[in-house]
Structures are given as C-alpha cells and as structure tokens.
Amino acid sequence: MRTVRQLLDTKSPEIHSISPDAPVIDAVRTMAERRIGALLVMDGPRLAGILSERDYARKIVLQGRSSKDTPVRDIMTVDVVCVGPHDSTDKCMQLVTDTRIRHLPVVEDGTVIGVVSIGDLVKAVIEEQRQELDHLQRYIAS
C-alpha cells in the first residue's frame, strides 16, 4: 500500500496557490491555464482555504456574483480536509469518498508540502491492482 509521500514523489513539486484577497477571476484563470481543478488559498505561509471549480460554480455562477469583484476569501472552502505524508492511499480514497471532495492538501509539521487529487489516487490504486494481478499470474504460472 502506497503512502502519500510516495505519491508526491511521482508528481511535480509545484504547489499552485492564490491569495485570499485576489479576485476570483484570477483564480479561475490560473486553474484554466494550469489545467487543475482547485487552488490552495494561502495567507502567507498559512493554509487559509481551498478554492475549487465547484466553489466557483455554486458560489459565483449560481448566485449571480461577479468573478471580477468578488475576492477569493468570499467563496473559498475554509474547513479544508488535509492529510499527512505518511497516510495511505486507501485512507485518502476513503476520505475523498466520504467527504465528496477531489483535492487533499498534504501538510507536514504545519507546512503544505503538496496536493493529492482524486485522479492521483485512482491512478495509484490502478497501479497497485495491476502489480498484484501480475504477481498472482506469475504465482499461478509457476
């Protein structure tokens, strides 16, 4: 079973974030340019929240607000579900399933060290299953 640390080791170390005071349009632009579904909202070194495409759709589009005039802090999710580098991919899959979220910031000693997405987790689970299947096929064949 893989750990979050092992998952992060296979990804780019870049962490995409935005200030809570930035206009929402800047966040949406960054997500589009980076082809990502969420940005961490950082107040200096502190994780202040997370902003996802879902937040944008529900709190800007459906409420008829202006993405140019609304600061990120007004629509970000404040109660961020985080994991640690030693947590297992199974635990993370359970978390994203139970909480219906798609992105998990990874925090170690109070510092954000990465983000794991549901796509990263699914990819890891598929790879683990593929390795197990290969192992079983070799065992049966021998």
Rank of each mutant, 00 (worst) to 15 (best):
T30L: 15
R58L: 15
A57V: 11
A27Y: 07
P45G: 03
G37M: 10
R34W: 14
R65D: 05
R34D: 10
R29V: 09
D43F: 03
M31I: 08
R34Y: 13
Y56F: 15
L39R: 02
I60P: 08
R54T: 11
S66G: 10
D55I: 02
V41L: 12
G64R: 00
M42E: 01
R29N: 14
R46S: 11
R54L: 04
R54V: 02
A32I: 10
V28C: 12
R46D: 12
V61W: 03
G37L: 10
A38Q: 07
L51Y: 06
S66M: 10
V28G: 07
E33D: 13
S52H: 08
M42N: 03
D55P: 07
V28S: 11
K59C: 03
A38C: 07
G64W: 01
L47E: 09
G44P: 04
Q63S: 08
A48E: 13
D43I: 01
A32F: 00
T30F: 11
L47H: 05
T30N: 07
I50F: 03
R58F: 12
P45V: 06
A27H: 06
L47P: 08
A57R: 08
R29W: 08
A27N: 06
R46P: 01
S52C: 10
P45S: 13
A57L: 15
D43Y: 00
I50L: 05
Y56H: 03
V28R: 08
A48Q: 04
T30P: 01
D43V: 02
R58P: 00
D26H: 13
I25K: 14
D43M: 01
I25C: 14
I60G: 06
S66L: 12
V61N: 02
R58M: 14
V28F: 09
L51N: 06
V61Y: 00
A32M: 14
A38L: 02
L62E: 14
S52K: 01
I36P: 12
L39D: 09
R29G: 06
L47F: 06
Q63Y: 01
V41N: 08
R65G: 09
Q63N: 02
P45K: 09
G49E: 05
L39W: 12
L39A: 04
D26Y: 09
G49H: 02
Y56E: 07
L40S: 01
D55H: 00
R34M: 15
I36D: 14
A48F: 08
D43S: 14
V28M: 15
D26V: 08
I25L: 14
A38H: 05
M42Q: 06
R58Q: 14
A48G: 02
R54I: 03
G49P: 09
R65N: 04
G49L: 07
R58W: 04
R35N: 15
